[in-house]
Design a protein around this nucleic acid. Sequence first.
DNA 1: CATGACCCTG
DNA 2: CAGGGTCATG
Length: 148
Amino acid sequence: MCNGHTCASRQDQVDQVDQVDQFNRCITSQLIKWFSNFREFYYIQMEKFARQAINEGVTSAEELAVGRDAELFRALNMHYNKANDFEVPDRFLEVAQVTLREFFNAIVAGKDADPSWKKAIYKVICKLDSEVPEIFKSPNCLQELLHD
DNA sequence: CATGACCCTG
DNA sequence: CAGGGTCATG
């Protein structure tokens, strides 16, 4: 039955599954790392633009708006969507604006004196996170994404 | 012991 | 981004 050419041994099959498993684990951890880096860049920009607004004399967070033409948006888009491969959801703009205002108010209030002042903001913003798209939860996520 | 969040560097 | 360290979880 198993002539060594057309049929893999049970052990070989087990090894293959292990390899696929490890492969997927590497890919996912890599993605997690990427998202982590994205998130960090996002907040760095938020702080940067919030301080910039303050230095420019903005007195109220209400004056801060993040539209698709905003410098802040351009900076972010440059990193996440340089080739404009997809349309940025309006939801993203909304959350970005909330985040910017959150930073603005915190800094104006002098909360940045506290070494961990950003955590309060993170706590607020993470609640605004959108649900993870179903495809990403699928075991065949990689295959499905590759088809597009 | 493994994994992931978070932080800081290069 | 990638690496590496720390800390909390399970």
